[in-house]
């Protein structure tokens, strides 16, 4: 995902702004990392450049 996409995203649970943590990047693309919600303390992973903004118990 492009770093600027973070500005369009919010925590799906509480709508707070997310913090971007980068493990691997290429130009302005984040390849691996996570989006962290400081309010509900959830981490949303970014894998293969695609964020996964789903609540942890999405399917259960």
């Amino acid at each position: 995902m492009k770093k600027e996409l973070k500005e369009k995203l919010a925590c799906p649970i509480c709508k707070s702004e997310l913090e971007l943590r980068i493990d691997e990047e290429e130009d302005d693309e984040v390849k691996e990392g996570e989006l962290h919600c400081p309010n509900c303390d959830n981490d949303y992973p970014i894998e293969d450049g695609i964020p996964n903004l789903l609540p942890p118990d999405f399917e259960s």
Binding site: M1, L5, K8, I50, P51
Partner: peptide, 17 residues
Amino acid sequence: EKFITELDAEICVRKKT
């Protein structure tokens, strides 16, 4: 991924199920 970029859009959630 390719098609979405071509259409000037972005993927902001992907979850395998």
